[in-house]
Amino acid sequence: MTTTETMPTFVPQFDTDVSKRKLAIICSKGTLDMAYPGLVLANAALGEGIETHLFFTFWGFEMINKKTMHDLKFTLLGNPATHMPQGLGGLPWMTAMATSKLKKSIADVGVPEVPEFLEQIVASGGHLWACRMSADMNHLTKEDLYDEVEGIISAADFIDKTEGAQLLFI
Protein backbone atom coordinates (compact mmCIF):
# COMPACT_ATOMS: atom_id res chain seq x y z
CA MET A 1 0.00 0.00 0.00
CA THR A 2 1.32 3.42 -0.87
CA THR A 3 0.96 6.20 1.58
CA THR A 4 0.41 9.71 0.41
CA GLU A 5 2.21 12.45 2.21
CA THR A 6 1.10 16.03 1.91
CA MET A 7 3.68 18.78 1.86
CA PRO A 8 2.71 22.45 1.68
CA THR A 9 5.13 23.57 -1.06
CA PHE A 10 7.76 21.14 -2.22
CA VAL A 11 10.11 22.37 -4.96
CA PRO A 12 13.37 20.72 -6.12
CA GLN A 13 16.43 22.56 -4.87
CA PHE A 14 18.28 22.81 -8.18
CA ASP A 15 20.65 25.58 -7.26
CA THR A 16 21.81 24.50 -3.82
CA ASP A 17 25.59 24.29 -3.48
CA VAL A 18 26.13 23.95 -7.22
CA SER A 19 28.66 26.74 -7.47
CA LYS A 20 30.98 25.09 -4.95
CA ARG A 21 31.74 22.04 -7.08
CA LYS A 22 34.46 21.95 -9.68
CA LEU A 23 35.68 18.98 -11.73
CA ALA A 24 39.03 18.45 -13.46
CA ILE A 25 39.46 15.58 -15.90
CA ILE A 26 42.86 14.59 -17.23
CA CYS A 27 42.55 12.81 -20.58
CA SER A 28 45.76 10.87 -21.26
CA LYS A 29 44.60 8.16 -23.66
CA GLY A 30 44.36 8.26 -27.45
CA THR A 31 42.09 5.34 -28.27
CA LEU A 32 38.46 5.72 -29.23
CA ASP A 33 37.15 3.72 -26.28
CA MET A 34 39.20 5.66 -23.74
CA ALA A 35 38.19 9.05 -25.17
CA TYR A 36 34.59 8.59 -24.13
CA PRO A 37 34.68 8.24 -20.33
CA GLY A 38 36.12 11.72 -19.89
CA LEU A 39 33.76 13.25 -22.43
CA VAL A 40 30.64 11.62 -20.98
CA LEU A 41 31.53 12.61 -17.43
CA ALA A 42 32.47 16.16 -18.40
CA ASN A 43 29.17 16.52 -20.21
CA ALA A 44 27.24 15.12 -17.25
CA ALA A 45 29.00 17.44 -14.81
CA LEU A 46 28.30 20.49 -16.97
CA GLY A 47 24.64 19.50 -17.15
CA GLU A 48 24.61 19.61 -13.36
CA GLY A 49 26.03 23.13 -13.32
CA ILE A 50 29.52 22.06 -12.25
CA GLU A 51 32.55 24.03 -13.50
CA THR A 52 34.49 21.51 -15.60
CA HIS A 53 38.05 21.55 -16.99
CA LEU A 54 39.57 18.95 -19.30
CA PHE A 55 43.35 18.69 -19.58
CA PHE A 56 44.67 16.74 -22.56
CA THR A 57 48.08 15.19 -22.12
CA PHE A 58 50.27 12.58 -23.81
CA TRP A 59 48.11 10.32 -26.01
CA GLY A 60 45.09 12.37 -24.99
CA PHE A 61 46.33 14.86 -27.59
CA GLU A 62 44.81 12.57 -30.21
CA MET A 63 41.43 13.89 -29.06
CA ILE A 64 42.27 17.54 -29.77
CA ASN A 65 44.80 17.30 -32.59
CA LYS A 66 42.97 18.46 -35.73
CA LYS A 67 44.75 15.74 -37.71
CA THR A 68 43.65 12.83 -35.50
CA MET A 69 40.53 13.87 -33.57
CA HIS A 70 38.18 12.63 -36.33
CA ASP A 71 39.97 9.34 -36.60
CA LEU A 72 40.54 7.74 -33.19
CA LYS A 73 40.79 3.98 -33.28
CA PHE A 74 39.82 1.01 -31.19
CA THR A 75 41.90 -2.16 -31.13
CA LEU A 76 41.33 -5.64 -29.76
CA LEU A 77 45.03 -5.88 -28.97
CA GLY A 78 45.88 -5.83 -25.31
CA ASN A 79 42.20 -5.71 -24.40
CA PRO A 80 41.00 -9.08 -23.08
CA ALA A 81 37.62 -7.52 -22.30
CA THR A 82 36.70 -7.95 -25.97
CA HIS A 83 36.78 -11.73 -25.34
CA MET A 84 38.33 -12.24 -28.77
CA PRO A 85 41.53 -14.24 -29.34
CA GLN A 86 44.39 -11.73 -29.18
CA GLY A 87 45.89 -13.22 -32.38
CA LEU A 88 42.88 -11.88 -34.32
CA GLY A 89 43.67 -8.34 -33.29
CA GLY A 90 46.87 -8.33 -35.33
CA LEU A 91 45.17 -9.25 -38.60
CA PRO A 92 45.04 -6.56 -41.25
CA TRP A 93 41.85 -4.45 -41.12
CA MET A 94 40.88 -5.85 -37.74
CA THR A 95 41.43 -2.49 -36.01
CA ALA A 96 39.43 -0.73 -38.73
CA MET A 97 36.63 -3.24 -38.32
CA ALA A 98 36.62 -3.02 -34.51
CA THR A 99 36.67 0.79 -34.73
CA SER A 100 33.75 0.97 -37.10
CA LYS A 101 31.76 -1.46 -34.95
CA LEU A 102 32.39 0.58 -31.80
CA LYS A 103 31.56 3.83 -33.60
CA LYS A 104 28.26 2.33 -34.68
CA SER A 105 27.41 1.20 -31.13
CA ILE A 106 28.19 4.68 -29.83
CA ALA A 107 26.12 6.36 -32.55
CA ASP A 108 23.24 3.95 -31.88
CA VAL A 109 22.84 5.30 -28.34
CA GLY A 110 22.76 8.88 -29.66
CA VAL A 111 26.24 9.83 -28.50
CA PRO A 112 28.23 12.06 -30.87
CA GLU A 113 31.69 11.48 -32.33
CA VAL A 114 34.65 13.01 -30.50
CA PRO A 115 34.86 16.40 -32.30
CA GLU A 116 31.12 17.01 -32.01
CA PHE A 117 31.19 15.91 -28.38
CA LEU A 118 33.93 18.46 -27.64
CA GLU A 119 31.79 21.09 -29.36
CA GLN A 120 28.87 20.16 -27.11
CA ILE A 121 31.09 20.34 -24.01
CA VAL A 122 32.33 23.81 -24.97
CA ALA A 123 28.78 24.97 -25.72
CA SER A 124 27.83 23.77 -22.23
CA GLY A 125 30.56 25.94 -20.72
CA GLY A 126 33.39 23.38 -20.41
CA HIS A 127 37.05 24.40 -20.58
CA LEU A 128 39.63 22.58 -22.73
CA TRP A 129 43.37 22.80 -22.00
CA ALA A 130 46.36 21.24 -23.73
CA CYS A 131 49.49 20.08 -21.95
CA ARG A 132 52.62 22.14 -22.64
CA MET A 133 55.05 19.23 -22.41
CA SER A 134 53.03 17.08 -24.82
CA ALA A 135 52.78 19.97 -27.29
CA ASP A 136 56.53 20.61 -27.13
CA MET A 137 57.45 16.93 -27.47
CA ASN A 138 55.35 16.61 -30.61
CA HIS A 139 56.20 20.08 -31.99
CA LEU A 140 52.56 21.10 -31.98
CA THR A 141 51.24 24.65 -31.62
CA LYS A 142 47.79 26.00 -30.87
CA GLU A 143 47.10 26.09 -34.64
CA ASP A 144 47.41 22.30 -34.75
CA LEU A 145 44.78 21.88 -32.06
CA TYR A 146 41.00 22.02 -32.01
CA ASP A 147 40.03 25.70 -32.15
CA GLU A 148 38.14 25.68 -28.86
CA VAL A 149 41.19 24.61 -26.84
CA GLU A 150 41.70 27.67 -24.64
CA GLY A 151 45.43 27.33 -24.26
CA ILE A 152 48.54 25.22 -24.03
CA ILE A 153 49.44 25.34 -20.37
CA SER A 154 51.96 23.82 -18.00
CA ALA A 155 51.02 21.16 -15.48
CA ALA A 156 51.54 23.74 -12.74
CA ASP A 157 49.11 26.14 -14.41
CA PHE A 158 46.52 23.39 -14.66
CA ILE A 159 46.94 22.56 -10.99
CA ASP A 160 46.53 26.25 -10.26
CA LYS A 161 43.37 26.61 -12.37
CA THR A 162 41.73 23.61 -10.76
CA GLU A 163 42.28 24.52 -7.14
CA GLY A 164 39.72 22.75 -4.99
CA ALA A 165 38.43 20.62 -7.89
CA GLN A 166 37.59 16.96 -7.80
CA LEU A 167 39.99 15.23 -10.15
CA LEU A 168 39.73 12.30 -12.55
CA PHE A 169 42.69 10.79 -14.35
CA ILE A 170 41.71 8.82 -17.42
Binding site: P12, F14, D15, V18, G47, E48, G49, G110, P112, Q120, A123, S124, G125
Partner: peptide, 27 residues
Amino acid sequence: TIRRVSTVGGIPIKELFVLFPQKPAKK
Protein backbone atom coordinates in the same frame (compact mmCIF):
# COMPACT_ATOMS: atom_id res chain seq x y z
CA THR B 1 18.34 14.93 -22.94
CA ILE B 2 19.95 18.32 -23.60
CA ARG B 3 21.61 16.82 -26.66
CA ARG B 4 18.29 15.63 -28.06
CA VAL B 5 16.63 19.01 -27.45
CA SER B 6 19.49 20.54 -29.41
CA THR B 7 19.84 18.03 -32.27
CA VAL B 8 16.18 17.06 -32.73
CA GLY B 9 14.44 20.08 -31.19
CA GLY B 10 16.78 22.55 -32.90
CA ILE B 11 17.52 24.70 -29.85
CA PRO B 12 21.27 25.34 -29.44
CA ILE B 13 22.85 24.03 -26.23
CA LYS B 14 24.25 27.46 -25.36
CA GLU B 15 20.73 28.88 -25.47
CA LEU B 16 19.41 26.12 -23.20
CA PHE B 17 22.03 27.03 -20.60
CA VAL B 18 20.85 30.65 -20.78
CA LEU B 19 17.13 29.82 -20.59
CA PHE B 20 17.46 27.23 -17.82
CA PRO B 21 20.73 28.14 -16.06
CA GLN B 22 23.05 25.59 -14.41
CA LYS B 23 20.93 22.47 -14.88
CA PRO B 24 19.00 22.84 -18.12
CA ALA B 25 17.98 19.18 -18.55
CA LYS B 26 16.47 18.85 -15.09
CA LYS B 27 14.93 22.32 -15.02
